[in-house]
C-alpha cells in the first residue's frame, strides 16, 4: 500500500503540564494565591480523565501559480502559500484530548463557574501541549531525513477558510481513529481538539 493512503494513529502519555499557561488562558496575571488551591483540585480531578490522541496522514504537495495543491484540497490561500513555500509534502493531523474535559466543564458549570473556567483553561493548555509534543516528534523524524518543518497552520488562520475542515475530516477518518467529529457549524466535538497542517521541505 502506498504511504499516502495510510492514516496513522498515535496515543501519548500526558505532556508536561504548564501551570503558567493555564493561568494565562484563564485570564489571570500577577498574584494567583487565592486560586492555587482551586486550580490544584481541578488538576487532580482532570489528571486521569484525559486521553492524548493524534491521527495523521502525509500528502505530497505542489505549488501552482494560482493555488496550492495539498493532495486532498486545492487552496488559493495566500497565508498558506507563504507558510508552505518550498515544501514538498505536508503532515495533516488531528489531535484531541477526548470528551471527558467537555463533561468536566459542563458539570462544573452547574456548581462553580470558576471551576468551569479553569477546566476550560486546562483543556486549552492540554491540547496545545499535545500538538507541541506531536509537532516535536514530526520535526525530529523529518530532521533525520534532512528535512525541515514549518510552523503548524490551521483552517481558519488568516485567509485559509474554516470550510477546509470538511475536506480535512473527509481524508483523516477522525471519528473512527480518535473519536473526533465535525458539527454542521464546523465546530469540533470534543471541543478541545485541533486540526492542522505541518509543511515539510528542505
Amino acid at each position: 500500500m502506498r504511504m499516502e493512503n495510510t492514516i496513522y494513529t498515535r496515543s501519548y502519555g500526558a505532556p508536561p503540564w504548564n501551570r503558567r499557561e493555564i493561568l494565562r488562558y484563564a485570564g489571570v496575571k500577577g498574584d494567583t494565591s487565592e486560586l492555587d488551591a482551586l486550580l490544584q483540585s481541578c488538576l487532580d480531578e482532570v489528571e486521569d480523565k484525559l486521553v492524548y490522541r493524534v491521527c495523521y496522514r502525509e500528502f505530497a504537495v505542489t505549488q501552482h501559480p494560482a493555488y496550492f495543491d495539498l493532495g486532498f484540497l486545492k487552496s488559493a490561500s495566500a497565508g498558506l502559500k507563504k507558510n508552505l513555500s518550498g515544501c514538498e509534502s505536508i503532515i495533516l493531523f488531528a489531535a484531541t484530548i477526548g470528551i471527558e474535559i467537555d463533561r468536566l466543564i459542563a458539570r462544573s458549570a452547574t456548581v462553580s463557574a470558576t471551576k468551569a473556567l479553569l477546566f476550560q483553561a486546562i483543556g486549552a493548555e492540554r491540547i496545545e501541549s499535545l500538538c507541541d509534543a506531536f509537532n516535536c516528534n514530526i520535526t525530529e523524524q523529518k530532521a533525520a531525513e534532512g528535512l525541515r518543518t514549518r510552523p503548524r497552520f490551521s483552517a481558519g488562520y488568516g485567509d485559509f477558510p474554516l470550510e477546509a475542515q470538511k475536506d480535512i475530516f473527509a481524508v483523516l477518518d477522525c471519528s473512527r481513529r480518535i473519536g473526533l467529529t465535525l458539527n454542521e457549524s464546523l465546530l469540533m466535538s470534543p471541543s478541545k481538539s485541533v486540526t492542522a497542517i505541518i509543511g515539510v521541505g528542505r
Binding site: R103, A106, R176, N183, S189
Partner: peptide
C-alpha cells in the same frame, strides 16, 4: 452499518 461520524448531543449537534 458503521457510525455516522457525527457526535450526538449534548457534546455534538446530532
Amino acid at each position: 452499518i458503521g457510525p455516522t461520524g457525527r457526535m450526538l448531543k449534548p457534546y455534538g449537534d446530532f
